[in-house]
Nucleic acid binder design. Structure first.
Lengths: 174, 174
DNA sequence: GCTTGTTCTGAACAAACGTTCAGTTAACCT
DNA sequence: AGGTTAACTGAACGTTTGTTCAGAACAAGC
């Protein structure tokens, strides 16, 4: 994961990976069918973790509370695994078509959770969003963007970042 | 550019590029010093175009109008060059350190324009943003996200997309 | 027709690629 | 101590990589 995140899937050789774990290249094939599976298992594991962690969140009552919970969860979860997140966005095109479809479905299901929150809030008259699908994607893109600049120990704490983003999300949909 | 966007810099060979333009691999070296320069020139050209096009925009008076102009400009410009945008986000790590620094500086200067707008608006009491730097990055991430899903001829027109995003940006900062 | 300068080919280079596999080494159970 | 299984090495395979370069092809001017 570290090597893929640093140099990219295509630029990392099986010999490099083997060297990093103190083994010869051939030994890797006792654990993985091929290089492609290495990438796929990484991405699938990440997406499943994401969905599992989201489902483990306590269910809030109001749409507003649920949206806040989602926002804070997304930021926290993504900031805890910058490498997996990075790879999940950058290496999609290096998946075989069938593997790609699996990851894409997982992601769409995650996006669907946010969209459902927005729909509920709009139907309840609490949110004012022109298009729940587009708004969900826009919010996720905004939140995931934190990963490109946040460094722990930097100017802002995680709590401050969460507060800033939640403030923007809340205002954007109400 | 097409090949880099489709398969990624590392996965595209000079022979593939040569084949695409109907020439042998060796002939490419009459036009480029090496493969790295090919990528760098592409990214630098894109960033310079971006900055040039932004500066060519008519200057609006109020912070709100300037923010709207920026929002619409960013969406339009990025949707017009999906390949260059994609490469500019994905292939940064394949630049040599000194080339990377050049591109990063150009991008930071672009982000600075948006931050300046936010600062002006906040000082004028029109915007309420907790952190202009973070807000600028959040807005840009949100807007650039359009490229991941928008397809011309799809459900929404460019004008509709601009309107939806501008509505979110406006509400998020006021 | 000859010269000049530019552009291209086609082969060559050493290095690196993913993957396989016979054979060695290590670990564990009886 | 012996036997079984799992893990690893090290070499090999056929390709492919970025880049170089001598020579062929080509166009332009006289």
């Amino acid at each position: 994961m570290t090597l893929f995140a640093r140099y990219g899937y295509a630029a990392v050789s099986m010999r490099q990976i083997a060297g990093e774990v103190g083994v010869q290249a051939g030994a890797l094939y006792n654990y993985t069918a091929d290089k492609q599976s290495l990438l796929f298992d990484l991405l699938k594991g990440h997406m499943v973790d994401l969905r599992t962690a989201l489902d483990a969140q306590p269910n809030s009552a109001s749409p507003q509370d649920r949206l806040e919970a989602f926002t804070r969860f997304h930021i926290r979860f993504h900031l805890e695994r910058p490498q997996a997140v990075f790879i999940s966005y950058m290496e999609l095109r290096n998946l075989t078509p069938e593997n790609f479809r699996v990851i894409e479905d997982l992601r769409r299901s995650y996006e669907g959770v946010l969209e459902a929150i927005l729909k509920t809030g709009r139907d309840a008259g609490e949110f004012h969003v022109a298009d729940t699908k587009v708004t969900a994607l826009a919010i996720i893109a905004m939140l995931t963007g934190v990963n490109t600049w946040y460094r722990s120990g930097g100017r802002l704490s995680l709590a401050e970042v969460e507060a800033i983003y939640w403030d923007m999300v809340r205002k954007a949909v109400t």
